[in-house]
Design a binder for these strands. Structure first.
Lengths: 260, 260
DNA sequence: TGTACATCAGTGAACGCGCGTTCACTGATGTAC
DNA sequence: TGTACATCAGTGAACGCGCGTTCACTGATGTAC
C-alpha cells in the first residue's frame, strides 16, 4: 500500500504516464522511497514529529544518512511526504467508513462510522496524527500539495451533512448576535460546501457553521484523548467519543431533538 | 507579576513562611529565576515548545548555560515551571473575565467573556498555548504539580454552567444509544462537577457531558485557528469564535432554542 | 548480441553546529561569634 | 563593629552526543549503437 501511494505521488508529480511499466530502476527507486517513508512513520509513532531526524530514519532503514538524499531533497521534503501520506491515509479511512454503509439515506449511521474512523486512525497512528493536527513543526510551512489530501476528511463530513440536509435535517435556531453574520464570517467555507451540493437557500450558513463546529469538536476530542487532557475525567474513551458524536449529529439535525 | 508567581511557587514548595521578608539573596534568586522563565517564554513564542533549548535561554538572559542549573535542576524542571506558569496565567485570565461580570445571574455574558479570554490569552501566547494544548513534548511527562493549575479553566466553565443550571438552563435531550451510559463514561468528571455545586439529580450527567463537549470545542477552535486549519475557510477569526461560543451556550441551555 | 558510455545508488568522511549536563574554579554575599 | 568561615552565583572548559547537508568516490544498472 505504501509503495502504491508513493508511486501515485510520483506519477502525479512527473505528469508522464507514457510507458505503462516504469523501468526496473524506477520501480526500485519508488519502493525504497516508500521504505524510507515507512521507517519515518515508525519513528514518528515512537518519538513524535519534532525529534524526527533524517539521520535516525536512514539508520533504521539501513542506509547511510547521505543516501536518503537520493530520495528526498531535504528533511522538509520528507516531512511534506509524511503529511501527504498521512492525510491520504486518514482520508481513505473515512471515505471507506462512509461508503461501507449500503443504505445511503441512513445518514446517522454514515456519520457515526465516519467519525469513528477518524478516531481509530488517530489512535493507530498517534505520531502521524500529532504531525497533522498537533502543534506545527517550527520552521516548516506545509506547501500547497498538502491542501487537497487534507480536505478529504471534511469533504466526507460535508457530503453526509448535505445528504442529511436534503432529507430535511435542520440545526437548531440560534439567536442573532452582534457583529458580522455567520454567512459572511465563513464565506469561503460556505462556498466550498455549496460546491458539494448544498443548494438550499434556507439555512446553508447555519448548516455550514454547525458542520465546522462538529468537525472541530471531533478533532478536539481526539486531540484531548491522545494528548492526555481527559485523563482522570473519562473512563471509557470509545464510549465517550460515541456520546460526543451522537450529540453532534443531533446538533446538525440528524436526530429529533426533544425540548429538555 | 512573573516574580510573584515564582515566589508563590517557591513558598509553596518550601512550605515555610517563617520570616515575612525573605533574605536579599533569596529575593535576588527568585527574581533571576523569574527572568529566566520570562526569557524561556519569549523563546517559546518565537520558536515553539519543541526546540526550546536551555542553552539558548541562558544566552538570552546573558548567562553561561551552566549557571541556569542554579535555578532549575534540569530542562524538564524548566518545562514544568513553564507549564505551571502558563496554566496559572490562563487560569487567572479566565477567572478575571468571569468575575468582571457584575450581574452574576447573567450567565450568558459570563460565558462569552470567559471563552473570549481563553482565545485572547492563546493568541497573545501562542508558544505557551502550544506547550499546554499542542502535541506533548516527547520524553517529557508532566508531573502532578501541573494538575491543579490546569484545572482552573474548566472550573470556571463549570461554575458558570452550574449557575445556569440552577437558574433552569437545560441542554437538549438526546436519544439513548447503545453502550455505556453517559453517567458511567464520565463518572469522575461528573463527581468533579458535583463538587462544584451541581446537586440537581435530573440532568447532571447530560450537563456534564455538554460541558466537556463545549470545553473541547473551545480549545479545538482555538487550536484550529492557531495551528492553521481554518486558513481559507474563515475570514474573521474573532467573529467566528463568537459564533461558536454562542452556539455552545445554546447547547448548554443558556439561551432559548427554537425548533428550526 | 556485444561493447562503450551515461546514469544512478549508496559509501564514508567531513563541515559546522547546537544540545544537556558535569565539574573545578573564582569572587561576592551572607552569617556566627 | 570586626573578623573567620560558610554559602551561593556565575564562569569557562570539557564531555559525548546527534543533527542536516555536502562532496568526491566506487560499483552496479541501464541505454545507444
Amino acid at each position: 500500500m505504501l509503495s502504491f501511494v508513493a508511486t501515485a505521488l510520483d506519477l502525479g508529480k512527473s505528469g508522464r504516464v507514457e510507458s505503462k511499466a516504469k523501468t526496473a530502476r524506477q520501480r526500485a527507486h519508488d519502493e525504497i522511497a516508500a521504505e524510507i517513508l515507512l521507517a519515518a512513520r515508525t519513528r514518528l509513532t515512537s518519538e513524535g514529529p519534532n525529534n524526527l531526524a533524517l539521520r535516525a530514519v536512514a539508520r533504521d532503514v539501513g542506509m547511510v544518512s547521505s543516501a536518503v538524499y537520493r530520495y528526498f531533497a531535504s528533511r522538509d521534503e520528507l516531512l511534506t511526504a509524511l503529511l501527504v501520506e498521512g492525510y491520504n491515509e486518514l482520508g481513505s479511512a473515512i471515505e471507506e467508513a462512509d461508503t461501507s454503509v449500503r443504505e445511503r439515506t441512513d445518514v446517522f449511521e454514515r456519520w457515526m462510522r465516519a467519525c469513528r474512523a477518524i478516531r481509530s486512525w488517530a489512535r493507530a497512528h498517534p505520531g502521524d496524527y500529532a504531525l497533522l493536527y498537533g502543534s506545527p513543526v517550527p520552521g516548516y510551512a506545509a506547501p500547497q500539495d498538502t491542501i487537497t489530501p487534507a480536505s478529504r476528511v471534511i469533504i466526507v463530513l460535508v457530503s453526509i451533512v448535505v445528504d442529511a440536509h436534503a432529507a430535511g435535517a435542520r440545526p437548531p435556531a440560534v439567536p442573532t448576535v452582534a457583529g458580522p453574520r455567520v454567512g459572511d464570517v465563513i464565506e469561503n467555507a460556505l462556498a466550498f460546501i455549496r460546491d458539494q451540493g448544498l443548494t438550499d437557500e434556507l439555512a446553508p450558513a447555519e448548516v455550514a457553521m454547525r458542520t465546522m463546529m462538529a468537525w472541530t469538536t471531533i478533532f478536539g476530542t481526539v486531540s484531548f484523548e491522545l494528548f492526555g487532557h481527559l485523563v482522570g475525567s473519562v473512563e471509557d474513551y470509545g464510549a465517550y467519543f460515541d456520546h460526543v458524536v451522537v450529540r453532534l449529529a443531533g446538533d446538525l439535525g440528524f436526530v429529533p431533538v426533544a425540548a429538555g
